[in-house]
Every structure is written in structure tokens, then in C-alpha cells.
């Protein structure tokens, strides 16, 4: 039943121009950054050769693209997640799903997975961008993989958060703005964590991603991402069930 919801969401997503515009824009921005970094690398290449243990192209070009991608996803997710539940509530179509023999959990997971599939496409494109460097050099595939896994987990967190906020209102625009506000808040926590104490480091989502971006797959960070995602999915399910109980 999850598949039924997933298929429907993907169909709705890709028949609207929004998904295609976002895919294009994200790819455009990231490729531009990628080429800028490539240019910078070519300029300092001769100096790098004089260092005993120089950083490779993966560290100089690929990982900065991934950390930029995290910020881009932070801004894009609210646009994709806003309609998932808010629109169903506004158009009264949620009744169709609730009256069908399907559980709230299936509905929520199906919708969540539709976002995951979309981000999977984006991340694959970013990986391909990195792999194109093989034309003129070698890559550190371990670092590339850990960055990709990190970005995937970050995308999952943003999706779950966006989905929950979308369940709180019947207005997609309000859902988008609220989700955007919360995401900005997380970005600010990340900036604040640069100077101050350790506990901000522990709760900052982007700081956890930074470790993946350095090639460090930390179980604490994995646990953080999984807990974050699960917590917001459970909250969404509870919210929809609550609607039925308190209506």
C-alpha cells in the first residue's frame, strides 16, 4: 500500500513543472559552483605540488559542492514538502485516503518516500558531477561515498520535518514558509556552533553533516539523523490520528 501512495505522489510531483524547475535550478547552481572550484584548483595546482602531502581534487572540489548542496536542499525542501499533506487537507482529499483500507503510517511513509526518491535523483546527479573529474584525475571514492550518504541523511531529516509541518496546516504556502523558517533556524544553530560550546555542536544538524563531509562516518551522527527523521514521522502520524480523534 505504501507503493500505491508513493506512485501517486511521484506522478503528481513529476506532472507539475515544479519538480523539473527545481531539478534544473539545483543542477545549474551546483554545476556553476563546481566549475568555479575546478577553476580555482587549476590555478593553485602548481603550488599544491610543492606541498609534501597535498589535498586531492575530491577534497578541494567535490566536498565543498556537497556542503553547498546541503544548504540548497535546506531551501528547496519546504517547496516540495508543502503540498504533501496541506493540499490534501485543503482539497478534502485526505478523506479518500482515510476511508480506504490503509493505515496512517502507510500514508505518511509513502509520502515521505516520494521526497526521498526525488532527493535520490538529485544526489545521483551530484555524484555524477564528481565522477566526471575522473576524466582528468583520480578520486577518493570513500570520501565521495561518505559525503553522499551524509547528504542523503540530511535530505531525509528535512523531508520528515517538512512533512510534519505540512500536516499542521491546510495552507501549502504557510507550510512552506514555516518549514523554511525552521530550516533557517537550524542553519543559524550551525553558524552559532562555530564559536561556542559543544552542546550546540551536538544538536546542529549541519555540523553532523560536516563530519560525513570530512569522510568521517560517525555512529553518533547516524543515530542523530535517524532519530530526527523518525521523531518527525511519528509526530506526523500522531497528528493525523489526532485529527480523527479530536476532529
Amino acid at each position: 500500500m505504501i507503493i500505491t501512495i508513493l506512485r501517486k505522489e511521484l506522478r503528481v510531483l513529476f506532472t507539475s513543472p515544479l519538480a523539473w524547475i527545481l531539478l534544473t535550478l539545483i543542477q545549474l547552481v551546483l554545476t556553476w559552483i563546481f566549475l568555479g572550484l575546478l577553476d580555482a584548483f587549476l590555478q593553485i595546482q602548481s603550488q599544491l605540488l610543492q606541498i609534501a602531502n597535498p589535498p586531492g581534487i575530491t577534497e578541494i572540489i567535490v566536498t565543498p559542492v556537497f556542503s553547498m548542496a546541503a544548504i540548497v536542499l535546506l531551501m528547496v525542501t519546504p517547496l516540495l514538502s508543502m503540498r504533501l499533506l496541506a493540499e490534501e487537507q485543503r482539497n478534502h482529499t485526505l478523506t479518500l485516503l482515510v476511508s480506504a483500507p490503509i493505515s496512517m503510517t502507510d500514508i505518511v511513509i509513502g509520502k515521505f518516500l516520494s521526497l526521498i526518491v526525488f532527493f535520490f535523483i538529485i544526489i545521483t546527479l551530484i555524484i555524477l558531477l564528481g565522477i566526471s573529474l575522473l576524466l582528468g584525475g583520480t578520486l577518493d571514492f570513500g570520501l565521495l561515498l561518505s559525503s553522499a550518504i551524509g547528504l542523503f541523511l540530511v535530505a531525509a531529516c528535512f523531508s520528515a520535518l517538512g512533512l510534519y509541518i505540512s500536516s499542521l496546516t491546510g495552507q501549502p504556502v504557510i507550510a512552506a514558509i514555516s518549514a523554511f523558517g525552521v530550516s533557517l533556524g537550524m542553519w543559524i544553530i550551525d553558524l552559532a556552533a562555530n564559536e561556542t560550546n559543544r552542546w550546540l555542536h551536538s544538536i546542529s544538524l549541519l555540523k553532523h553533516f560536516e563530519r560525513f563531509n570530512q569522510g568521517l562516518i560517525d555512529t553518533f551522527s547516524i543515530a542523530y539523523f535517524i532519530l530526527f527523521t523518525t521523531a518527525f514521522l511519528v509526530l506526523t502520524i500522531r497528528r493525523l490520528d489526532g485529527e480523527r480523534l479530536h476532529g
Binding site: 506522478r11 503528481v12 506532472t15 485526505l94
Partner: peptide
């Protein structure tokens, strides 16, 4: 709910689906 069919006061229609797509989705849901 597998034994139930429900038409609410406001029909729960996805405006940007075709009739066939929508009915097939409803059939799969049930």
C-alpha cells in the same frame, strides 16, 4: 474499511489527475 465505499459531502478529487488515473488510484487503494 475494505467493505466500505464513501462519498463525502465535498468529493475527494485530485483536480490535476485524469478520470482514469484517479479511478485506478482509488481501485489500488481499495
Amino acid at each position: 474499511k475494505a467493505h466500505l465505499g464513501f462519498l463525502p459531502e465535498i468529493p475527494p478529487l485530485y483536480q490535476d489527475m485524469t478520470v482514469d488515473e484517479y479511478l485506478l488510484f482509488a481501485a489500488r487503494l481499495h
